[in-house]
């Protein structure tokens, strides 16, 4: 606890949310506390407040995204901000313009917040050095996806009361996953024990150095776990010879009722989406309302993003 207090004492006002790695324990607590108030708001009949009225939020998505982009858009609108979503994937900007040039162009429009998703790790960091507004990372390369981890934490707290002391298994394509990395940092910070489970070809080098135990056997990795977090297996990974086949992957690493039995009886199933039913998760398990909190994750995602927008939106 002494360490946490010290962090509080030297808390630096930071305008950007680039990754969980940059956050302090108290900042995370603030975000989660704030998000809880928005859960109630989002369930009420009048969902709109004017906390960010007059503020401009630009969503800059260089990679296709459905849920994250719409979640951020809705979050901004519910807080009263003017939200503009630029889908770079189908835009002329894609042709030739560098990230910095795009940033300078947008900066000239005086936005207050830019939410960025980019295929290159570190792109939000680069952007944050060049613009006057707050930058929120909505996923960069394989590096971080901080709001996803925060909404996962909120979902766990909502169901289990706390994260501290829980045992969490993150299963699947850890190598290419920013969700896995952000969750490892956050769940460790919040006092959980984290296992990662994946075939060796999908485990990043030196992953143990991030404070996790690595397993290649679901039966060992899920043992005594309270949370089973499944990751999406991208089909293109099959062609890179990371795996023999989807069939073999499902056999050994797909979440089935049999394998789930190894985890604690009341273990929750999570998935950041979009799911590949029958590849990484049994379709009935995914829909099991007693175990799966996948839809709740989406619901709380809006609340978490509202909290992040509110807290990180540059004052003045």
């Amino acid at each position: 606890m002494a360490v946490i207090k010290k962090l509080k004492a030297i808390k630096i006002e930071q305008d950007h949310l680039l990754g969980i790695q940059d956050l302090s324990f108290s900042q995370v607590s603030d975000i989660l506390k704030q998000a809880k108030t928005f859960i109630t708001l989002n369930k009420s009949s009048s969902k709109k407040v004017d906390i960010l009225r007059g503020k401009t939020q630009i969503n800059l998505f260089f990679e296709p995204s459905t849920r994250t982009q719409s979640s951020f858009e809705l979050a901004g609108k519910r807080l009263g901000a003017d939200v503009m979503s630029m889908n770079i994937v189908n835009s002329a900007i894609k042709k030739g313009e560098t990230l910095i040039d795009t940033a300078m162009t947008l900066n000239a429009m005086h936005p207050d917040i830019i939410v960025i998703r980019h295929q290159d790790s570190g792109a939000p960091n680069l952007l944050s050095q060049k613009v006057n507004c707050s930058v929120i990372n909505a996923g960069d390369g394989r590096r971080e996806h901080p709001t996803q981890a925060l909404l996962d934490a909120l979902t766990i707290i909502n169901r289990k009361g706390k994260v501290e002391g829980l045992k969490i298994a993150i299963c699947g394509d850890i190598l290419h996953s920013r969700v896995a990395r952000s969750n490892i940092y956050l769940m460790n910070m919040l006092g959980a024990e984290v296992n990662v489970v994946a075939p060796k070809t999908l485990l990043p080098h030196s992953i143990e150095r991030l404070g996790v135990k690595a397993f290649t056997d679901m039966k060992k990795g899920l043992d005594n776990c309270d949370i089973v977090m499944m990751l999406r297996l991208q089909s293109e990974r099959m062609h890179g010879s990371f795996l023999p086949s989807a069939r073999e992957y499902y056999e050994y690493f797909g979440l089935t009722p049999d394998k789930l039995k190894i985890a604690n009886k009341d273990a929750l199933i999570m998935h950041p989406g979009p799911m590949n039913r029958g590849v990484e998760i049994d379709t009935n398990l995914a829909d099991d309302i007693n175990r799966s909190v996948i839809r709740e994750q989406v619901e709380l995602g809006v609340a978490v993003r509202m909290a992040c927008l509110k807290i990180f939106c540059k004052k003045n």
């Binding site: 080098h205 150095r209 991030l210």
Partner: peptide
Amino acid sequence: NEGEISTRLGLKG
């Protein structure tokens, strides 16, 4: 370099 840093930075090693 492929190692802890590449894992942390999310860069291919």
